[in-house]
Design a protein around this nucleic acid. Structure first.
Length: 269
DNA sequence: CCTGCTACCTGATGGC
DNA sequence: TGCCATCAGGTAGCAG
């Protein structure tokens, strides 16, 4: 479960459940969930430690322990499950048994990971993350600078986590629709005014999505929870062939970087 | 450094 | 029914 708003809502919902709790045991029913680390490494790092703080960076979820941290990444389909009784049910790849309740990490597709690290910034993917789009450093100027320095298509730039942290395939397309910008446009050919529009669109889309993800909040039961609440706010993603909600033109789907982009060929220029 | 491509996995869906 | 192709929220690693 994937992009910034989803992970942020997970972090917020998780805090009261796990902060201050001790990890009494770590089970790894599917070792692929910790690859390339080992069961023993993760268990040794986390067992007996107390969860002090829950942080989101980009799409990473970091459980800071009193020594080291657990770094979770959901990739495409990973999700959390909460077992108040501590008894596992269904598919779980990694289980953190806490002093009260058990947190499970599950991903049938086995792309998602749970790793233990001595330091959060030991993770290259976190260390190199770009600006947090809902943070103070993400200004129209900053976005304008990023755009000017790349000739790549806008959509691919927005997906690059080292530029802007946390946008994924859904919200990149959504943001470009709101900004009325063609996903194929070369980044360095975007005007200042257009960069301003894009900045505003990104912030607006992510804030709105976060609201959707917080109501209803994640229940750590249904892996599809986030997508249901989201659909009403989507303007282009997954709407190939349907009428643009601004101009009624048919939405197009194209491939960029091996992934689908959705846009309106009439009002996105 | 920048860019583009592939691998990594599983399950759902649709055409024939 | 069954079989095959295609698609899916992401990133790491590697070649040029």
């Amino acid at each position: 479960m994937p992009e910034l708003p989803e992970v942020e809502s997970i972090a917020r919902t998780l805090r009261p459940l796990v902060c201050g709790r001790r990890i009494v045991r770590v089970d790894v029913p599917h070792r692929i969930g910790v690859k390339p680390q080992t069961r023993a490494w993760v268990a040794r790092g986390a067992t007996g430690r107390t969860i002090r703080r829950v942080e989101r960076r980009g799409k990473y979820l970091v459980l800071h322990l009193d020594r080291g941290c657990l770094v979770l990444h959901f990739r495409l389909d990973g999700h959390l499950r909460w077992f108040p009784s501590g008894r596992l049910e269904g598919h779980v790849d990694v289980a953190l048994h806490l002093s009260r309740g058990t947190l499970g990490f599950a991903d049938r597709r086995h792309f998602g990971r749970v790793h233990w690290h001595a330091q959060r910034d030991a993770v290259a993917g976190i260390r190199t993350l770009g600006a947090e789009p809902l943070g103070p450093a993400f200004t129209p100027q900053r976005l304008g600078d990023l755009l000017r320095r790349s000739r790549r298509p806008l959509k691919l730039l927005l997906l690059d986590q080292t530029r802007v942290a946390g946008l994924g395939n859904i919200y990149a397309s959504e943001s470009l629709w709101h900004a009325r910008l063609d996903p194929r446009r070369a980044s360095d050919r975007v005007t200042l005014a257009e960069a301003g529009r894009l900045h505003k669109a990104i912030v607006r889309v992510l804030r709105r999505a976060l609201q959707c993800c917080l109501d209803p909040a994640p229940d750590f039961t249904d892996p599809e929870w986030w997508f249901e609440g989201l659909e009403p706010m989507l303007r282009v993603y997954g709407r190939e062939g349907l009428a643009c909600r601004r101009c009624r033109q048919a939405i197009r789907r194209i491939e960029q970087g091996g992934r689908s982009s959705y846009f309106c060929p009439r009002c996105q220029k």
